Computed example of a mutant assay.
Amino acid sequence: MPGRQPAVIEDLGRGELVGWSWMFKPCRWHMGAKATTPVRTHEFDALTVRMLMDADPALGFVVGHWVSQVLAHRLQATRVRLLDLYAPYGSGSVV
Rank of each mutant, 00 (worst) to 15 (best):
P2T: 13
G3H: 13
P6Y: 08
V8E: 14
E10S: 12
E10T: 15
D11G: 12
D11R: 14
L12C: 08
L12S: 07
R14C: 11
R14L: 12
E16M: 11
V18T: 10
M23E: 04
K25R: 15
P26W: 04
C27T: 05
R28F: 06
W29T: 15
H30V: 02
A35W: 03
P38W: 02
R40P: 00
R40H: 08
T41F: 13
H42T: 05
H42R: 03
E43W: 06
F44A: 09
F44E: 03
V49P: 04
R50A: 11
R50P: 06
R50G: 07
R50I: 10
L52E: 14
M53E: 08
M53K: 03
M53P: 07
A55I: 01
D56R: 02
D56K: 00
A58F: 00
A58K: 05
L59V: 06
F61V: 04
V62E: 11
V63Y: 00
H65I: 01
V67W: 00
S68T: 05
Q69H: 06
V70A: 08
A72Q: 06
A72C: 12
H73F: 11
L75M: 13
Q76P: 02
A77Y: 02
A77M: 08
R79P: 00
V80H: 01
L82R: 02
L83D: 07
L85T: 14
Y89S: 06
Y89K: 05
G90P: 04
S91P: 03
V94L: 10
